[in-house]
Simulated assay, not measured.
Amino acid sequence: MLIRTETKDDFKHVFNLNYLAFEKRDDEAKLVERIRFSNCFIRDLSLVAEEQGEIVGHVLLSKAKIIQENGEKEVLVLAPVAVNPSVQKKGIGSNLIQEVLRRAKDLGYGLVLLIGHPTYYPKFDFQPAKQHGIELTQFIVPDDVFMVCELIEGELQRTNGELRYPPAFFR
């Protein structure tokens, strides 16, 4: 399996992959498109997994912000991660997540947040964000599915406030 940065030639394949991975709904596929053409997109953090020339997985980190008492802090949000249903449960999603988190850290980003399954993401060091003083009001979700991963030691101690997803998540 090859994990690489997404290219323009991959866009159609990534759309179809997200459509299949999310039960033939196009919400996530359209979200990826909106993010790609917004100012929250980071090209180096949109990755695909390729097997035998076919794209079988995709993960995307994009910019968001935490509103704090003393201003705003730029952070990343993970959404979505997709794996072709025909090859799920083979570690493709895990490999994509590990690689995108490594790249985000290398780029100097300190925190990644997400809304996700509370038993899946802790293996990547995600933990409930609320216990670290980070709130989410744009979406109503249980506390255990709103999670944060500290990529750079000490970032959680310096961060509290409300996560704000960018407009691309709401169109």
Rank of each mutant, 00 (worst) to 15 (best):
G116V: 06
P80S: 07
V87A: 14
S86L: 07
L47K: 09
P85Q: 06
I67V: 09
P85A: 02
G57Y: 00
G53W: 02
Y120D: 04
R43M: 01
R102M: 15
I55Q: 10
G57F: 04
G110H: 13
V81F: 13
S94G: 08
A82V: 00
I42Y: 12
E99P: 01
A104E: 11
H117R: 09
K123T: 08
G57K: 02
L47P: 02
I42D: 14
V48R: 08
E69K: 12
K65I: 09
G57E: 07
L61C: 10
E54L: 11
E74D: 13
N70P: 00
T119E: 15
K89N: 12
F124T: 08
F124Q: 06
E99N: 04
V56I: 14
K123G: 11
E51R: 15
D44F: 00
L101G: 03
K105Y: 00
S86N: 05
I55S: 08
Y109V: 04
K63I: 11
T119N: 12
G71C: 14
H58L: 09
Y109Q: 01
K105T: 00
R43P: 06
P122S: 12
V56F: 01
V56P: 03
A79P: 08
V48K: 12
K89V: 01
N70F: 00
V112K: 10
Y120S: 14
D106A: 01
K90L: 05
D106L: 06
G91A: 07
A49Y: 01
Q68N: 11
G93I: 14
E72W: 08
G110E: 15
I92K: 04
L78Y: 04
E69C: 03
S62R: 07
